[in-house]
Design a protein around this nucleic acid. Structure first.
Lengths: 238, 238
DNA sequence: ACAAAAGTGTTCAGTTTACACCCATGG
DNA sequence: CCATGGGTGTAAACTGAACACTTTTGT
């Protein structure tokens, strides 16, 4: 498995092929400071000062999903994380060093489980707020935008948000998650009514500890019940 | 531009690369007989008697969207047709002759504008009803299923159905289109109310001719008005 | 006159939205 | 006793689904 992304290794990969395939991951991190995106300082001189998504070439005998997982693991230390393919970008001039077609993925992780380094091959890695993304190299801004859209759509239509909370969570934590990631405001009473009416949140019986106000009840998401409902034609929707 | 898909040309393309990229198109044809899919008899001996989607390798300096349009044109004679990327399939063993990653597209055309041949390179091309697809080579059944799903989703959320009707059409023709392609039944009154409430169907003033019953009024889809509404945040939905 | 498809309203149920106050706890 | 967030109900507006008869035309 490749373990660096220097210009030399890039050239070597490209020379072996008329056409190369890469994966690029938009990694969303959810935490105290809101929703951020993990970016890498671009190593190509023509994109000096700009940033890029985290990516690598797909190896000759590697599944593209596996390549995306490998990239995700390399930069975050995480395995078995939710990763979704978004779209493939294949304009002939999108990469200045040659023909590279790239398949975009996004992932949604908890910032506090992130276990990456500050730099790779001498190039910085940094979290940026979604509303303050820097200049992006290649066509990575377009890719980023399409991943933001797809991620928000999936968050509304699949129960992937629960992976960003502790096993036990309060309804306010859940609401805040949707508000932050979707960049919307929700009504507390309506939100609770809707979520509870799905019959997939079960009270654990526990309550918050050490908070300077009335402690909230804790819930867990009943994944088995969700699967059962799914097979009966149910569609999750926030 | 490549103009054949024989086994020899396939091998040649693959030998030049560790990894090849192809496009595969699911071509839906709408007409009198309902919704059909255009398939090609598979040329590989190990898939004898099976059928495959219409595809080709992406050329070194060709956009992937262009490759899909090229394939579509080759097999249907059509240009400037609606074509949508669905997903990229990259399992290492999906192609018996080597590593081929493929990007799937679907297109929706009018059967009566179809202008293809009966065979290409000695292999038959045939329309199959969506409910009677034959044995498919490679992973093409999986690809087909994902394209059917995506096409139906897009039909409901974008006004792509109007491309399958004459410029002027009756409301019944429109309703039948949605019923056939989505494989559902719709209530006539509710359907008309909903469509008319979008304020994007304008009566042309003309009526049907030469029908053995009360002639229906003809409408056209106001694409400009649709664009205007779009930019004001409107979302099309059937 | 008949056959065939066009055209047209109303009711009911369920869902979504808007909105404000009291409660429990820690400090 | 104060500050902080937790927790709760109701009314109005809107949306989606069900449902049947009259009209116009050609033969």
């Amino acid at each position: 498995m490749p373990e660096n992304n220097t210009i030399e290794s890039t050239r070597k990969t490209m020379q072996a092929n008329q056409l190369s395939l890469s994966v690029d991951c938009v990694i969303f991190g959810y935490g105290e400071e809101g929703l951020r995106i993990l970016l890498l300082e671009c190593s190509l001189p023509q994109y000096g000062g700009q940033w890029s998504l985290l990516g690598d070439f797909v190896q000759p005998d590697e599944d593209i999903d596996s390549a995306a997982h490998r990239v995700l693991h390399r930069y975050t230390g995480l395995n078995n994380v939710y990763l979704e393919q978004v779209m493939t970008f294949g304009h002939p001039d999108r990469h200045p060093l040659g023909r590279v077609v790239t398949t975009a993925y996004y992932s949604l992780i908890k910032r506090d489980e992130y276990n990456g380094r500050k730099a790779y091959d001498g190039f910085a890695v940094k979290w940026f707020p979604v509303h303050e993304v820097p200049q992006m190299a290649f066509d990575h801004m377009v890719i980023l935008d399409s991943c933001v859209g797809k991620m928000r759509e999936s968050l509304r239509e699949h129960p992937i948000g629960f992976q960003l909370l502790p096993k036990q969570f309060t309804l306010t934590q859940l609401q805040t998650l949707y508000e932050v990631v979707l960049d919307i405001n929700l009504d507390k009473r309506n939100f609770r009514r809707k979520l509870m009416s799905l019959n997939m949140l079960v009270p654990t019986g526990d309550i918050q500890k050490d908070v300077a106000h009335r402690p909230a009840g804790l819930y867990r998401f009943d994944y088995d019940e969700y699967q059962r409902k799914l097979s009966r034609g149910f569609r999750f929707e926030i």
